[in-house]
Amino acid sequence: MSEKKIHEDQKYVDGLLQNNSFIIQAIYDKFVPKVVNYIKQNSGDADQAQDVIQETIFTIYNQAKEKGLQLTCPFDAYFFLLCKRKWLNTLKKKNNKEVTINEAVLSKDDDAQELVFETALFEEKQALFNEMFQKLGAACKDLIKATFKIKSMEEVAKSLGVTYAYARKKKSLCIGQLTKLVQESPKFNQLNY
């Protein structure tokens, strides 16, 4: 990844990171109509397209923020393929059977395919982590939240009325418990670990 040249469209990713309304607007003006057409041609409507697009942009934002996403292909191809993938997954979940798809619009851009795969994987991980986090006990949830909100573990320990050593140990074990829940999930095998 790092040897590849960063595409000039990285400006869109950076714009999302900065919550820049002009850039978000530009994405909607330039790249969204194509996605809306595709979804409409493949048994969807404008409302469904709106949801798919919003979620896709949110995922790109998250990946940029957490993983420092670097675009090595045009934003257009990357964005379109991501939305398409998401829409096909939605259709599969809904119908639970084979769907006929208009495959006329397919990118042959390998960089784009690779990046889309990474983002999709990132999104699946996030979804599973979030789902499993909800299954943790209240004490673990509170401790984890406090740990990342209040940066100093001494303060966390103080606020929870426990010793520093206990708070540290408990934090590791709570995160460990979460990883265990993730690993035990049937979805874990799709996550490429």
Partner: peptide, 16 residues
């Protein structure tokens, strides 16, 4: 790797 990913996810989610 999983522990690292989960930690990073939680950190990003809660901090931001």
């Amino acid at each position: 790797k999983l522990y690292k990913d989960v930690s990073s996810h939680l950190q990003h989610k809660i901090e931001n």
